[in-house]
């Protein structure tokens, strides 16, 4: 009996960067699925491996200094086995990516029209006139005012928010079934952020695409995601439907993050929660044992697991390790 396959499946993905003769994994044994019509959010602190995960799916690493293991299954193909020519066809056509740095992904010497049109040219057989119509339609969709005029402009002539919308227009140009958006609204005003998130949801309603939304903003997650994967030091430590994650966070890292969100304090002497220490650099990552343990030093040594694995604790809610059952914040009772 054939099993219904997900739109995108990531199986045991490992991405290691070379330091001298050794590879250190920035993404370590990550497995994920993405369905049609779904927004999967990936959250975690800076350096946790979110962008590396995204660029690994897109096959965008320099093979000389990167070692990628595992599978990325799309339409029964393991993308990681494809040659560059086939991969190029997948990128943009099947998987659209919005990169973390919008300026860096626009060509400063090309007009907005030419940049969007170029990606249409590469992936579709529209003629010049159809392409022009499509570019206008896209710019309208992403809420760019006066598109006829703006499309003749160069990137530096646009505000940050407008450039971000152009980047989104390019990622969406060919209506890809999979969209990977890496911090698409970071650094934007809340009003523009809200517009862009609405737009992504609208486009999804229209095309049924699956979206991987990378962000460190838990508010954005709460407002848009269907499912959430929390990443710490290259691993997924918790995964759950969005309502479940906010109502019932289990992993100490997830609970710590939620506790650090600025809010109005009841008592003037109250403070925001701070997680001890920092995300370790790749070379300093513990090779054995639990990666988060050093950041909750008040938890006794013997209550950590040696090599914690993900457990499904209720339908679709997965948590790494079991010692969350005894976790408490410093100064709190067990």
């Amino acid at each position: 009996m054939a099993v219904e396959r997900s739109l995108l499946e990531v199986n045991n993905l490992e991405t290691g960067f070379r330091f001298g003769d050794v590879y250190h994994n920035a993404v370590d044994d990550v497995s994920l699925t993405l369905e049609n019509n779904e927004i999967l959010a990936i959250v975690g602190e800076s350096g946790c491996g979110k962008s590396t995960l995204a660029t690994s799916i897109m096959g965008l690493h320099d093979p000389k200094n990167t070692e990628i293991k595992g599978e990325v299954i799309y339409k029964d193909l393991n993308l990681l086995d494809l040659n560059e020519k086939l991969y190029n066809r997948i990128r943009g056509n099947d998987i659209g990516m919005i990169f973390q740095d919008p300026l860096g992904s626009l060509n400063p010497l090309m007009t907005i029209y030419n940049q969007i049109s170029e990606s249409l040219e590469y992936h579709s057989d529209l003629n010049e006139e159809q392409r022009r119509a499509r570019v206008l339609e896209l710019l309208n969709q992403v809420g760019i005012p006066r598109p006829e005029q703006i499309m003749k402009n160069y990137p530096h002539e646009l505000s940050g928010g407008m450039r971000q919308r152009v980047v989104i227009a390019i990622a969406l140009a060919n209506k890809p079934p999979v969209i990977i958006a890496d911090e698409p609204t970071t650094a934007l005003d809340v009003t523009i952020q809200a517009q862009i998130l609405d737009l992504m949801v609208d486009i999804q309603d229209e095309t049924g695409s699956g979206i991987i939304l990378i962000t460190h903003d838990l508010g954005v997650v709460a407002e848009t995601a269907d499912r959430v994967a929390v990443m710490y030091a290259g691993q997924i430590v918790e995964e759950a439907p969005v309502e479940e994650l906010f109502a019932n966070p289990k992993h100490p890292y997830t609970r710590s993050l939620l506790n650090s969100i600025p809010h109005e304090l009841e008592d003037d002497d109250d403070e925001l929660h701070v997680i001890h220490g920092t995300v370790p650099s790749l070379q300093k990552l513990p090779r054995k044992g639990c990666r988060f343990a050093p950041r909750i030093p008040w938890i006794p040594e013997d209550s950590h697991e040696e090599n914690p694995v993900l457990h499904e604790i209720s339908p679709n809610h997965k948590v790494r390790c079991t010692c969350w059952k005894h976790f408490h914040f410093e100064g709190e009772d067990e």
């Binding site: 809340v190 508010g219 709460a222 407002e223």
Partner: peptide, 25 residues
């Protein structure tokens, strides 16, 4: 308008929050 666009940390009231935000917009 600015205040209505602040993301709401409660996913269960998401739909209502969006309706309200778009009303203010």
């Amino acid at each position: 308008r600015l205040l209505s666009a602040i993301p709401d940390m409660d996913p269960t009231t998401r739909a209502a929050h969006k309706v309200e935000r778009q009303r203010v917009e």
